[in-house]
Design a binder for these strands. Structure first.
Lengths: 253, 253
DNA sequence: AATATCGTCTGATATAATCGGACAGTTTAA
DNA sequence: TTAAACTGTCCGATTATATCAGACGATATT
């Protein structure tokens, strides 16, 4: 619980180097050295070491992040049994609705978009697989927050707070809690303009044997999502998808 | 060129810990310690440090790789301008052909699948975004190898050799070179059963302003790819896709 | 209830990260 | 063309820090 053991500074710095390389999109020892305020020789050893790991490549004196990150990330995703069960069903849902579909899980108190599928009229809003957001900032995350064990929900709210992403993001804890109550009762969550202006979301949880595994979201332009009859259609299709994911997860079909 | 500066052992070990965590899919300090042959307390400090970086999460005493890898990998992919230009075109190609489409680039002398798109009758052969393979083992890689600057091609063949993946993989350098010559002349590459038994591939290079940027591949069952007329159709669609990628890359449409 | 095994933490020790400086190669300016 | 100012890579002395044995309470197992 407490944090008495100090982390290894060399390892932390190695990851700082990775961050710098991402930010500048490739650099040599000198540039890394000035950005991190360390001697040039030190920066060089880090870069040399990271190249050895395969996560950095040296491309004519210029060091860049390699695609090893993509490989490792993809393998993590493809090994996930929820993803395996969900992928084809999400694809169908994207084809049928034409909207942007997301599969979301909770990790370390945050929302992670494990997978996204796009339809023919999907929004393109910088949503990407692996994207991390606060759970309280959108309907899919709230569908998770509402169905986690209560003590876990409390813990997450306490440690992460309610940071606003737009002026519509819920920041009042009391309001969030009543919202979560109705989400739990209704079985789904809807909101718009809370994470990204102009984007509306419908989210519903995936529960298997009473355990929450994640949530599926449908994202569309706020205007479309606000339309009552269209929203009802989407909710029904969403629930159908979740049901078939659940069946496939349990029985493999 | 030589490797006189020794890499930092602590950083290398940190990445070894990540590898172990991947292999066992989550473990505590004790298990990591025995697998790496280090004291338990040492393993603990590494895990604690990696947790701090965000690439590892502690989930009830069990440490796992986090989805930060997926986030970083995706961001690298989405920032790539070739990917940005190619994605919608590859999607169309997948819809039209129904086959598995791959976008491949060269990195550190190897083939990296930057992106894949699946159609309604695509093979499912463990191909994933970020996957790294030898360049000589398949048509898409050979399309790259054939169109790289000659000295680069030589360098790659020399440093990486011609490791076989199946009994059909080309391992004779002379044969590979004559094959590369005809690929360069024809403008495309075809083979089957060389990387994975039962899979056939058509690959063609993406060249922009005389510079090789990568290659696009169409993968299907060996039987389908061997059919002359079908293969011709695929080649034409492939070339059309590459042309529109080129245009979009240069002029943004 | 007793024993084994777990994750976490402390403190002494010796290893390994650090940093100034040297060097050759390349780009920039004069 | 020359000179100056860069660059990336490497060496060696120093000292900060990764390492390791062992202790601790908490869980799991027997």
């Amino acid at each position: 619980m407490t944090d008495a053991t100090p982390p290894m500074s060399s390892v932390l710095r190695a990851f700082d180097v990775l961050t710098v390389l991402w930010e500048v999109n490739g650099a040599g020892p000198s540039e890394v050295a000035t950005r991190m305020d360390v001697p040039k020789s030190t920066a060089h050893v880090y870069l040399h070491t990271l190249e050895e790991t395969g996560y950095v490549v040296n491309d004519g004196g210029e060091y860049r992040l390699s695609h090893q990150f993509l490989a490792t990330g993809s393998r993590i995703k493809h090994r996930n049994s929820l993803f395996q069960a969900a992928e084809p069903k999400l694809r169908e849902l994207a084809m049928e609705t034409g909207e942007l579909i997301t599969l979301v899980i909770e990790e370390a108190g945050q929302s992670v978009i494990l997978h996204k599928e796009t339809g023919d009229r999907s929004l393109e809003l910088g949503i990407y697989s692996g994207m991390i957001t606060p759970l309280h900032s959108n309907a899919t995350g709230k569908a998770i927050l509402a169905n986690l064990p209560p003590e876990r929900t409390d813990e997450i709210i306490e440690t992460h707070g309610l940071t606003p992403l737009t002026e519509k993001t819920v920041t009042d804890e009391e309001r969030l809690r009543t919202e979560l109550d109705s989400i739990r009762e209704q079985g789904y969550a809807v909101d718009w303009d809370q994470q990204v202006k102009g984007m509306g979301l419908i989210g519903a949880p995936i529960e298997i044997d009473g355990e929450l595994k994640g949530a599926v979201g449908i994202a569309g332009p706020t205007g479309r999502i606000q339309d009552e009859t269209y929203q009802t259609t989407l909710r029904q299709e969403l629930q159908g998808t979740i049901d078939s994911i659940t069946i496939k997860y349990r029985y493999g079909t």
